[in-house]
Structure formats: C-alpha cells, structure tokens
Computed example of a mutant assay.
Amino acid sequence: MRVGFIGTGSMGSMLIETFIRSGAVNPENVVATNRTIAKAELLAANYPGLQVARSNKEAASQADLLFICVKPLEFKDVIEEIQALLTPEQIIVSITSPVLIRHLEALLPCKIAKVIPSITNHVLSGATLCIYGDRMKAEDQKRLENLLSRVSAPIRISEEHTRISSDLSSCGPAFLAFFIQKYIQAAVSATGISEEEATRLASEMTLGTGKLLTDGGFTPAALQQRVAVPGGITEEGLRIMEKELCSVFYDLIRTTHAKYEEDLEKVEARFFGTKADEERDAFTSFPYEPPCP
C-alpha cells in the first residue's frame, strides 16, 4: 500500500515520522508534498526512500491511501485540484475536523474517512479518532485502523461528537500541559524548589497517572478516592480545586465549540456558498449547566 500526504506541516510530518519510526510504513511506500517543497524534502533527507511529489496532483495520483493535512479554508482548493485524478478505489483521509464527510463525498468519487490524530501519537500513544463515510467498507476501515494502531489506539466516533472528542484527545494534551505548567510555576514560586526538579516530578506523576487510568483500571473518580484520605491534605486540595476550577472546564468547552462553529460555517460557505445552521447546531450545541458548588 502506497501512502500519500498532501501537507507536511505539524500534523502531516508527525504522522509521516511516526508511521515510519513504528515500522507501519516503509519510507519507500510514502509520497509527500507540501506547498513549501523544502519541508517535504527535509523529511526525505531524514528518511531515505521517501518520495517527494512536486505537486498535489502527483501525490494524489500515486497514493492508494491519501492523507490531506491542510488548513480548513485551504481544503476546497486542494480538492478541486486533485478531484479529476481520483478513483473509486482510493481512500482519502482528512485530518481537518470542520471539513465534514458529506463535503468530501459530494465532490470526490473515492472512499472518504476523517481521522483526528493527537500529538501523543508522536510517542506511539494516545487515541486517533476515526469517522467513516458510507463508501468505506469494513475491510477498508480495518485496513486504515491496522495502520493507525501502530501509533495509537484508533477509536471510532460519530461525526456529531467530533469537537468534544477532539477537545479530549487532541487539544487535551495542551490543556493538561498548561495545568501542569501552572502547577510547577506555583510550586517554584511558593517553595523555592527548582524548576527542573518540579518539572521532573510533575512529568513522572503525569505519566504514572495516565497508566493508572488506562492499564491500572482506575476511573478518575476512583483514583481521587484512593489517594484522598478523609481529612487529609489531598482531600483539602481537591476541595479548593472543585471550588475554583469547576466552571473553567465548562467555559473551555463552550469556547472550543464556538470556535468550531465559526470554522464550520466558513468551510460550509467555502464548499457550497451557503450556511447550514440546523446541521451546524446539531454538531456544536450542548447544555451549559456546570454542576459546580
């Protein structure tokens, strides 16, 4: 299977590198292109055998499985450029969440999937969200998930939950890293512990917590209960966090959904020159009632 990439920015290059490093794909079976060809050439220099395509058309014509890794408002131009070259047997994979399956199926003859990767895939961990169009047969889905499983845990989701699922799996590492960063800064400022030592302790704690929540069989609630002795220090810390942070997470979700709604509307107009208010609301609405004390 020949795997192609249009776009070798942050996520495109991460996918190429992790697929090759994991042994999921040999460099000789990868063809990549980018608007700035030098970026694709750098990947080829690091992974001998990887072929650099000089245009989107060249990449599309040579790939059995084609990942399109471009920004939402650039997607329509790429599609229009390559659509005449594509065949029903090819699989097109979008990693751009506001571009809907129906947008692509309306314009392309091939099989359509949407995959939302995470920066955690860089260390062969975390989830990859998978959404499939009607043309993707069971064997096509298995083929794609076999590839993704070498670098992540493929998880099938419904397209209506793209945003919140992405918040948790793809945006989540940045949100969690922000929390850890602020925790470290407070520790350094309040106690004089070195930033290096605090960072190491917090990082090891994060790694161990992740393993407890995956391999260890704990739920978040059960883990808190196990650590927090009644009347103890952890319980007191959790009390202040519940009081001060609860509404922040609802504001966070409301903000990410509002941005997604804005992007979805722009993509809809870019593809069809219209807005789809009812469908947009179905994808982005959620109750905003934080159960905070």
Results as ranks from 00 to 15, higher is better:
residue 236 E to T: 10
residue 267 V to N: 01
residue 40 A to E: 03
residue 57 K to W: 04
residue 211 K to D: 15
residue 17 E to G: 07
residue 253 I to T: 11
residue 27 P to C: 04
residue 277 D to M: 14
residue 269 A to R: 15
residue 280 R to G: 00
residue 202 A to M: 13
residue 56 N to K: 10
residue 180 I to T: 09
residue 171 C to W: 08
residue 227 V to C: 05
residue 71 K to T: 15
residue 216 G to V: 04
residue 41 E to P: 02
residue 158 S to T: 13
residue 140 D to S: 14
residue 184 I to E: 03
residue 222 A to V: 09
residue 283 F to E: 00
residue 171 C to T: 01
residue 77 D to W: 09
residue 288 Y to R: 08
residue 16 I to G: 06
residue 168 L to P: 10
residue 66 L to K: 03
residue 92 I to G: 01
residue 111 K to D: 11
residue 190 A to Y: 06
residue 75 F to P: 03
residue 290 P to G: 12
residue 68 I to T: 06
residue 119 I to L: 06
residue 195 E to S: 13
residue 86 L to T: 00
residue 167 D to M: 14
residue 239 R to I: 07
residue 60 A to T: 09
residue 188 V to M: 02
residue 280 R to W: 00
residue 33 T to I: 00
residue 121 N to P: 05
residue 53 A to C: 04
residue 203 S to Y: 09
residue 202 A to P: 03
residue 49 G to M: 01
residue 195 E to V: 08
residue 48 P to T: 06
residue 144 L to H: 08
residue 182 K to D: 12
residue 83 Q to F: 04
residue 30 V to T: 10
residue 39 K to P: 05
residue 130 C to S: 12
residue 130 C to R: 02
residue 57 K to V: 13
residue 247 S to W: 11
residue 17 E to R: 13
residue 170 S to R: 03
residue 199 T to A: 15
residue 228 A to W: 03
residue 210 G to Y: 14
residue 262 E to F: 11
residue 74 E to N: 11
residue 43 L to M: 03
residue 144 L to E: 11
residue 192 G to E: 14
residue 76 K to P: 07
residue 258 A to M: 04
residue 87 T to H: 11
residue 205 M to G: 08
residue 119 I to A: 14
residue 187 A to K: 04
residue 139 E to R: 14
